[in-house]
Design a protein around this nucleic acid. Sequence first.
DNA 1: CATGGCCTGGCT
DNA 2: AGCCAGGCCATG
Length: 283
Amino acid sequence: MMPELPEVETIRRSLCPHLIGQTICQADFARFDILRSRLGSSKVTPAEAARLSTGAVVTGLDRWGKYLLMQLDGTWGWAIHFGMSGTFRLKSTEEIDAHTHVRFLLSSGDWLSFRDPRRFGSWTRIDRADLVEAVNGWVGLDLLAPALDWTRFRALLSKSESPIKSRLLDQRFISGLGNIYVDEALHAAGIAPFRPSRTLTDDEWRALFRAAQRVVRAGIHHRGTTLSDYNDVNGNVGDHSSYLRVYGRAGQRCPKCRTVIEKVKFRGRGTHFCPACQSANGR
DNA sequence: CATGGCCTGGCT
DNA sequence: AGCCAGGCCATG
């Protein structure tokens, strides 16, 4: 499965034709722990979640950062987060196992199921039609938001002693990047993950912004990165893993300069980089 | 702001 | 048996 921007966008696109306009004829929520509340939203029980969803029409499917936003009846919706292991599957027959936590029977006759073994994913009820507006209060501007340019990107991220990688992973500033695409973007821009944010030059901010957008767009183009699991709702895997240049490639040679790629533990996350072409000041 | 915790599954 | 994993949240 997958939880960064390109994977959520891949799921959204594959879901749209099957979901938009459908009525949810039956809804089952199996557990309390994936139902969450957040600022501006209310916590619901599985029984309430099922009652609210039953009979609702899916009127929109959007994405903001790593959240999938399912609009219902044009008035409210679910903000769905995939955690580390969340997936949607669409099947013509009912299937249930211990890790399937939500199931919708659609008016088309299809069953939509949400499976999440590790249960880091979440469903949050948003009590208004403008889900994007609501989620915008939880997480920062989406990396692909039209309003974003490199100067705004710089303004959001630069005023900090914290390392650029930590800043890019912090969804409160820019949302959508996770561990894979951050490592890829920093490599593409030639910037060491450990560099304090405030030390980047304007040329580097411009390069980093472009690289970040480029790597997530490439990820979307390849229908996401699949490391060990299924990806879109039809069970197809994404192609992007073969295009990764540093993530998961420790010990291999950098495609730019042939230096051996290193992997270190940094702030609790595996961090892949080229020690030669990602200038290491501040490490 | 850096660490540990939350979970399961897969790999060594 | 132990470590690792695409994410986030609570905590000192």
